[in-house]
Design a protein around this nucleic acid. Structure first.
Length: 426
RNA sequence: GGGGAGAUACCAGAGCGGUCAAAUGGGACGGACUGUAAAUCCGUUGCUUCGGCUACGUAGGUUCGAAUCCUACUCUCCCCA
């Protein structure tokens, strides 16, 4: 049986900056056979965040190049805790939280992969094969094949020898390693991918496959994403940027990408979109000529928002951005119908209040919950940073009936980027 | 077990009887400039009914007055065994 991939996966990952290292022979395998490869996702929250998008892209590329992706959710490994990259022991999640997290993550993963056809993806949960695996069986059948010396040599363990590591987290690599072994045996899975911090865990898996099954399996890792200023990727002022619309609105999601720094945008657009090399290089050329137009960031934000959410979500996000950051005025705001207004500000924090007319701006800012205290409200007002319905106001400003948009909304703003909506109860 | 040093705002770190809501730097937020950038410059960074009120590890004490002095406790770090 002959197999030709749609494209050379590793070459593709390399020019996109998604390649860190692989095991010898991985490339040949991928170019001559259809390979089933997997990546595991930790159920640490009930939603994935933009950082998880990197492994998702890896799976999507795997599938697009003609191979079969398996997304694994860590119902079992999530109970243990991966020490990789962690400075201290983690708190264990309870079963209920774990279940909720697993369901949330599974639903999100489905969106990115095609579960039909020749390259049909599958979704597995390692709890399924671990739940009836007894401790004694595990240490006899799996633990016997790996020495403690071997396990201690891993960076994830070595880095914790000084500060301490529980037996639980120490065992983690064996549990994950066995996943690979199980998938090898039952799904003919011969590749595991992941971030470069997963290298140690993955190699424990290939080692187990060699010793238990006498087989050969491979690893491909992607570099860990860091921002050029050294801060963690995927955080914005408001914390993590999630894929769940209830946690991070389409508007905020779009803004996250739009705000990418110039020297990051080229890197990010390679990693997080499927645009080809030519298109990206042209965009970069255009961007270099007119950086203020930020074509690169706009295209990046459009592509990713559409991929993760939808075209409609993108449209809303763009509309909201135009209103919030364009040269829109108080009049533009008032010309919006109520449903448009709500759509535009869908992702903006809001609160409900009554008896707002006649209220002083200081009280409104503090009582609505937009600012923490009246002192802060006064401070910001003195600093000329507060706008009501897009017009700067001072400390003496009173809320009039005419300030209500559509008879019930007031748009508060601190600086350029912080918005808040007060919904007036009548 | 013995000896020593320390605990100050988001972080680092001064202050060592009143003039301390607490220097300075970083961070954060805001303003100017700009491209919803970077760099730069400027401002702000405990609460308040604007009378005050709470705050310098915790609890007491000395004093007209304490972040500063005393006592106990808790925790952290260092050295020796």
């Amino acid at each position: 049986m002959s197999f030709t991939p749609q494209y050379n996966l590793l070459d593709e990952l390399k020019w996109r900056g998604l390649f860190h290292q692989d095991t010898p022979g991985a490339e040949e395998l991928l170019n001559t056979q259809q390979v089933t490869g997997y990546i595991g996702f930790d159920p640490t929250a009930d939603s994935l965040h933009v950082g998880n998008l990197v492994p998702i892209m890896l799976l999507m590329h795997l599938q697009r190049s003609g191979h079969k992706p398996v997304a694994l959710v860590g119902g079992a490994t999530g109970m243990v805790g991966d020490p990789s990259g962690k400075k201290a022991e983690r708190v264990l999640l309870d079963k209920n939280t774990l279940d909720k997290n697993l369901r949330g993550i599974e639903n999100q993963l489905r969106r990115f992969l095609d579960f039909d056809g020749d390259c049909a993806a599958s979704l597995v949960n390692n709890y399924d094969w671990f739940q009836n695996f007894t401790f004694l069986d595990f240490i006899r059948d799996v633990g016997k094949h790996i020495t403690v010396n071997y396990m201690m040599a891993k960076d994830s363990v070595k880095n914790r020898i000084e500060s301490g590591i529980s037996f639980t987290e120490f065992s983690y690599q064996l549990v994950q390693g066995y996943d690979f072994c199980h998938l090898y045996k039952n799904h003919d899975c011969r590749l595991q991918m992941g971030g470069s911090d997963q290298w140690g865990n993955i190699v424990t898996g290939t080692e187990l496959i060699r010793r238990i099954e006498g087989g050969e399996a491979h690893a491909v890792t992607a570099p860990l994403l860091t921002k050029s200023d050294g801060s963690k990727f995927g955080k914005s002022e408001g914390g993590n940027v999630w894929l769940d619309l209830n946690r991070t609105s389409a508007y905020k999601f779009y803004q996250f990408w739009l705000n990418a720094a110039d020297d990051e945008a080229g890197k990010l657009i390679r990693i997080f979109t499927f645009l080809d090399q030519n298109t990206i290089e042209n965009l970069e050329t255009e961007h270099a000529v007119a950086p203020h137009l930020r074509l690169l960031q706009k295209r990046l934000a459009e592509e990713v928002t559409t991929m993760v959410h939808s075209q409609e979500a993108l449209n809303t996000a763009i509309a909201a951005s135009e209103i919030l950051f364009g040269k829109s005025t108080s009049e533009d705001l008032r010309s919006l119908g109520e449903s448009d207004f709500l759509d535009v500000f869908e992702g903006v924090d809001q609160s409900e209040m009554e008896g707002v007319t006649g209220m002083n701006i200081v009280d409104l800012l503090a009582d609505s919950g937009f600012l923490a205290s009246k002192s802060e409200a006064k401070r910001e007002l003195k600093g000329n940073s507060i706008s009501v319905n897009k017009e700067k106001v001072d400390e003496l400003f009173q809320i009039e009936e005419s300030a209500l948009i559509n008879g019930k909304y007031i748009l508060l703003q601190k600086g350029k980027k912080n918005y808040f909506i007060v919904k007036v109860k009548s």
